[in-house]
Amino acid sequence: MALFPLLSNFEGDFVLQLVAVDTENTMDEVAAAAAVHSVGRRVRARPDCIMRIRRQGSEDFLPRTMKVSESGLKPTETVEIIWEAARH
């Protein structure tokens, strides 16, 4: 349990933002924390989608349940939050 700063690069938004998460947070929780500062402010919500996390430059998403402490992310590293169509 420790505060962990990340930079959020949210799909559709225009600026990187500082987001404070916890090392115990999952990637879904990181996405939700990042969304607070973009969705409904400058990015429209997309109820048909879920939000996935990936490292900048990577095509692959990190597993949704992976914890920050397991991810190898560095403090202040930039993560991309990408809309993914929800499976029904």
């Binding site: 690069n9 559709g12 938004d13 600026v15 990187l16 930039t78």
Partner: peptide, 17 residues
């Protein structure tokens, strides 16, 4: 200054670490 790029349909925001 803020690290920014084009939003919306032209989204190309990127960090240069």
């Amino acid at each position: 200054l803020p690290i920014l790029g084009t939003p919306g349909k032209g989204w190309n925001v990127k960090d240069y670490p």
